[in-house]
Each structure stands twice: as C-alpha cells, then as structure tokens.
Design a protein around this nucleic acid. Structure first.
Lengths: 142, 142
DNA sequence: TTACGACTTGGAGTATACTCCAAGTCAAGA
DNA sequence: TCTTGACTTGGAGTATACTCCAAGTCGTAA
C-alpha cells in the first residue's frame, strides 16, 4: 500500500492510489456514489486523505460483490445522522452474511476443482492410463 | 439437492434442476457454451443426467467468477482429445489460483466489516457515547 | 376439430458497469 | 503570446449476461 498524502491534488493521483481509472472515479461521482469532490480554482478535483480512504473502502465492498447501487445506499446513510446507525449496521451485517456464504461456496468449488486437477495430473503422469476411462469419470460433471 | 432423473424431458425441468432460467439455458446453447441439445420429435429439448450435471458444474464455475467465454474455452477443450489435457489442467490450476486469491480477499474485507459492525454495535448499545466521535473514527474509511 | 399449453425460433431490448470521445478551460513554460 | 498538458464536461458507445417477445409448431384433451 502506498502512503496517502494529506491532500491529493489530481484525479490521476487519486486513480493511482485507489486502483480505479480516472474515468471510473468521474463515473462514480456522476452517478452519486461518490460525493461531488472539491475543485481547485481551475476546476480540477482535490481529495483529502479520508476521501481517498473511503474510495478504497468502496473498492473493497465492490470486490466482495456489492453492487454500485447497494454501495450508494450505504454511503447515503453514512452521511446522515445517528438514527441511521441501525440501518447501516443491518446493511453491513447483511453483507457480512453474504460474504460468509460466498466464502463457503468458493471452498466447495475449490474442492471440486482440486479433485479434477488430481485426475488430470494422474493422466499426464501416467500416459498409459486409458484416457477414455479417466475423462469419462471427470466428464460426468464436465 | 434434488434427485436428477436419468432423462430430463423438458427445459422447464432442466431449469429447475440447474437453478438457471429456461431463457438462460437457451442462451447458453445459443452462444455455444452448451452443446446443441437433443430434441424430441416435436423439437423439445431433452437432457441426460450427465448433461444436467455438467450444466450444474458450469453454474459453480460461474459462481466463482469465471466468465462465459472462459467456461466456453474449457468446455471446448474437454470435448477434444488427450492432447488437450495439459491445457485443461492449466485452466483449472489457473482458476484454482484465482479462487484462492478471491478467498483471501474476502477474508480481509470480512475483517474490516467486522470491525465496523463492532463500532456500530457499541454506538447502539451505549447511546450516550458521542456519536460524532465514533462515526468519525469509522468514517475515516467510510 | 379446435382449443390449450408447453415448447420452439430469431431477434430485439435491458441492466450494470464502465470506457471513450469531442470540445472546452486553465496554468505554466518557451 | 502561443503552445502544451492536465484536467473539465456531457454524452455516446461497449461488453457481458441475460431477459423478453412475437410468431410458429406440436401433442393431447374436450
């Protein structure tokens, strides 16, 4: 992780720090996922360290399968008052739950893939094995 | 998981068994991800148990983020001869690797979310806490 | 025989998330 | 002053993965 300066003075730098493209950052602002950024006198965007960190957090949520709309709801609530804390909490809990399921699913598929890899390894290491036989076993679930 | 009959005689049933919609199954066949299915005399699609299982395996790969194009490449290789085994193997190994990374990423985000949930819980359980203080800590990375 | 329901086809339309472009502005250096 | 480069905007275009629709076919039940 790069050091994030106190103030980020160009969209290019913001893109580098967040891993998004400049276009994507502008797009996120356009659809209201990111708040309208402050501009310099010449109209160029400026970001505080906190803003950059909040963008990075969004990219993490995105990486876990949250849609832009869901992130938007969450962000909109975050900028409101105390009353929304239970709502924010439930969004996070909900998402936590989804990720847990996702992780379980991934582990299951991982096991299936490992089983297949094993079969293919056996075939390559022992070319005398009847391929028809092996692949048909594998082909059962492709 | 439902029992899969030896022969599945309607696309509706195939959809129920695989969790896809009828339209999606037709779409997959249209783009060549699924082989052209046998038809009854009236033109309706029929599937063997093995074909249903292979569709289910595809849905699992998809759930792990494999694109339709990647699945298509894999499937096309699977229907070819022994020479493609090393290739199939490398596709699987590659994907296995990707899923491993994905799982690590998910765990990391899970930790961040747990941290936030914790903070929000503290706020709700102790309403006397200065909210401004707490949310600002959280808001640092939104 | 006619109506009905379950399917068929090709093709158009949609949602999501970008990605690209043209035309314009502004500040700094030659 | 002119050019260059980094940005700005609104809007159009693209990729992926469906999703929907109109028109037609087939087999059974009344």
């Amino acid at each position: 992780m790069q050091e994030i300066p106190e103030i980020v003075t160009s969209i290019k730098q913001a893109a580098e720090l967040t891993g998004l493209t400049e276009d994507t950052i502008r797009y996120y602002e356009k659809i209201g996922l990111l708040p309208y950024a402050d501009r310099k006198r010449n109209g160029h965007r400026v970001y505080s360290r906190e803003q950059i960190q909040s963008i990075i957090f969004l990219t993490r949520l995105k990486a876990t399968g949250m849609t832009l709309e869901e992130m938007k709801s969450y962000r909109e609530l975050s900028s409101l008052d105390k009353d929304t804390v239970p709502l924010r909490l439930s969004i996070l809990e909900n998402h936590h739950h989804k990720i847990q399921n996702e992780i379980s699913r991934l582990f299951e598929v991982q096991k299936i893939i490992e089983y297949k890899i094993d079969h293919y390894r056996k075939i390559t290491q022992n070319p005398d094995l009847n391929d028809t036989n092996c692949t048909s076993t594998i082909k059962k679930d492709l």
